[in-house]
Nucleic acid binder design. Structure first.
Lengths: 186, 186
DNA sequence: CTCTCTGGCTAATGCGGTTAGCTTATAGCT
DNA sequence: AGCTATAAGCTAACCGCATTAGCCAGAGAG
């Protein structure tokens, strides 16, 4: 009987791809096993549990997401950097809905590895916002506001909550513009 | 053997309360059955399925949420109305996390009853925003933006994503202020 | 070539949702 | 009050999915 030649990283990667296709909530050990050409129990030789699989997908996704965000914002400054960041944010979530859902889970308390990866995107967000010239005391507020808005928009869009005909991309740009204007207002 | 005297509405209500306690995702037929003092299969005399239960909780919650929002905003106008709306939004979600999670699910296509209840909150949101004197063409954009931001904030806060010490309520007010300023900016 | 380690498999457990089919409390009628 | 039909509850059973136990063989190290 030939081996499938799996490795934990390959299982996580396949899981991430599958999550994008069927949704993180519908990701099942049986489905993933079929995808990688193996029987369900064999997966446990590579991942500890379904929960561990989700954590692995989440950490991998957080790292990929941070790279995409950084690449988009690099070389830009001020409002343009914020827009580039926001556009990359939305594009990535639309392209990788399953991965994105996995990135939303906050790390378990004490999970240093996860916390570190999670902080990467936050750091980029901070860097982008400091380019707006915000006073130090408002940086955290602005970061929370922008993150909430982008996440909420992505979450609602993915859930099909924007029924009206009006162009969704335009609404997105309007929101980001409004936030930038509000951040830098007197 | 005495009857428990259940009714569908009572089951939904108990389910909503239980969802607030354990989280919508952890709401189980067995748990709810125990709560209402009945064996699991007996629940099916009152609700068609777990999914139907969630729909019922969602519709009930949407109606309650709309009432809370309307009550908060009534009699106010302009920015004050928006703040009252936003504060009521956050307070309600913190108080009813399970119910709130149930309100997020978009209605199934063709589910008129659900769609109608879902539209109530949206309508209140529109009414509050028109008080800002927005041009008609921007009303939808602003509604989407505010909803996204409030939902995203609530969602992240519930998920424990705001780790830093900085006061969360202040960040929330900052976000709402920024949006209002941005909406009404030139 | 052999030994060991490890990935893969089958069988089995347990939980959660759901269905089938029986039993009887209770409402409504006479 | 007695009779009956309906419907609420119950037990038994099924199915899907996560997970564990224990066996077997492929592949690399020597």
């Amino acid at each position: 009987m030939p081996r499938a030649g799996l490795a934990p990283a390959a299982v996580i990667e396949a899981g991430a791809a599958l999550a994008d296709e069927v949704g993180l909530d519908n990701l099942t050990m049986g489905l993933l096993a079929e995808r990688v050409g193996v029987r369900t129990p064999s997966l446990y030789k590579h991942v500890d549990s379904l929960d561990a699989l989700r954590r692995g997908i989440g950490m991998r996704a957080k790292a990929e997401f941070a790279v995409a965000l950084a690449r988009a914002a690099v070389g830009q400054s001020g409002a343009a950097a914020v827009h580039a960041f926001a556009d990359a944010y939305r594009a990535w979530t639309l392209e990788h809905p399953g991965r994105y859902a996995a990135t939303v889970r906050a790390p378990e308390p004490g999970d240093e590895e996860d916390r570190q990866v999670s902080d990467e995107s936050i750091q980029i967000l901070f860097d982008v916002l400091t380019g707006l010239g915000l006073p130090e005391s408002r940086a955290i507020d602005a970061a929370r506001a922008l993150r909430s808005s982008l996440h909420g928009f992505a979450s609602l869009e993915a859930g099909g909550a924007f029924g009206l005909d009006r162009d969704v991309t335009e609404s997105y740009h309007f929101m980001v513009d409004a936030l930038i204007a509000g951040f830098t207002a007197p």
